[in-house]
Simulated scan of single mutants.
Amino acid sequence: MHEEDYMKQPLAYIHPEAKIAPNVVIEPFVTIDKNVEIGEGTRIGSNVTILEGARIGKNCNIFPGAVISAIPQDLKFKGEETLAIIGDNTTIREFVTVNRGTKSKGQTVVGSNCLLMAYVHVAHDCIIGDHVILVNNVQVAGEVKIDDWAIVGGMSAIHQFVHIGCHTMIAGGSLVSKDVPPYVKAGREPISYAGVNSIGLRRRSFTNEQIRDIQDIYRFMFQKGLNNSQAIERIEAELPASNERDEIILFVKNSQRGIIKGYYNSENKE
């Protein structure tokens, strides 16, 4: 930073090796460690702590009390040099914590144009896409992947290694222990399929035809009594090829934890 920038922040501690772009607003009682980079136009609220390894993009807004790039809460971590990366135009509300990575992936990533509401925790080595919303007090365990445009309701807990697909909507208070495929709504206990996220898809300019095709795919996956292999075989044989179809099939085939089940009630306990 330039000397005049220091003069504007007499109550903040900024390590002399931190790289702070022009037009960054740093409020009182902020701590910024060495090996930190912050892009232009970002605002850092009071009492924010930004530790070694943080890479924060342009035009972000980080609210008071947040802690970015603290070391992982992982006993296997041995002090290796890793990163916590925040994309451009992302808002991080009060008391959010984003831990940096371990040697597993080397970095934790939160994409651009995201909103992390108050008290969200993002653990080590998570990869969160663009336009993701994590509502108040969502707790994300290590090495979770959340794809673009996903919305996770407040008070939800996401198990380590879970993969949440793009354009999903997860109900508040969910315990997410299985992978959630793209374009769906998920909720209930245990977490299960609750339909296609048609409202969200329309807001993002998906056509009615695209939405109907997605609904047809998930009828095979969740409503015909088929296992995943049988469903994929029928989908490939009977439904037209599309980007959405191929993305859903690839997601299911690559799932490491298994995908959520269909609607769970007293007559359907599989």
Score class of each variant (00 low, 15 high):
A150K: 04
K224Y: 07
A12G: 10
E247W: 05
V162Q: 00
Q9H: 14
V110W: 09
V140L: 13
N265C: 05
Q230M: 09
E80Y: 06
V196N: 02
D130F: 08
D88L: 11
I260V: 14
D216K: 11
A84Q: 02
C114L: 11
K185Y: 02
R257Q: 08
M117W: 00
Y218N: 02
V67G: 00
K253S: 08
V24C: 06
Q256P: 04
A157K: 13
N228Q: 12
R188N: 15
G225M: 03
A66D: 03
Y218C: 01
I249A: 04
A70V: 05
S266C: 06
G187T: 08
E209Y: 00
L11F: 15
H163Y: 11
G101R: 01
F63I: 04
A84D: 09
K178C: 04
R212G: 06
K178S: 11
K261R: 12
L75F: 08
R202S: 14
W149D: 14
I232L: 12
Q256K: 15
M117N: 10
F77W: 15
A54E: 04
R212Q: 14
G106W: 03
N268A: 08
P10F: 01
Q256L: 14
H15R: 04
L239Q: 01
I170Q: 09
A21R: 10
I71W: 03
K76P: 07
C60Q: 00
E94K: 07
E189V: 13
D213K: 13
H15D: 15
S46Y: 00
G57R: 01
I44L: 00
D130I: 02
M221N: 03
G200K: 11
T82I: 06
Q210R: 05
I85R: 06
C126K: 03
P22H: 09
I32T: 01
V96Q: 05
N136R: 08
G173A: 09
I158L: 15
R257L: 13
N268R: 10
V36M: 13
A171D: 08
Y6S: 04
P190D: 13
T168E: 05
L83Q: 12
E94T: 09
G142S: 08
I68W: 01
V252Y: 00
N61L: 14
P28K: 10
I164G: 00
G195M: 03
R203G: 09
G111A: 12
A66W: 00
I92F: 11
Q223S: 11
I146L: 08
N228W: 07
F77A: 05
A194C: 12
S198D: 15
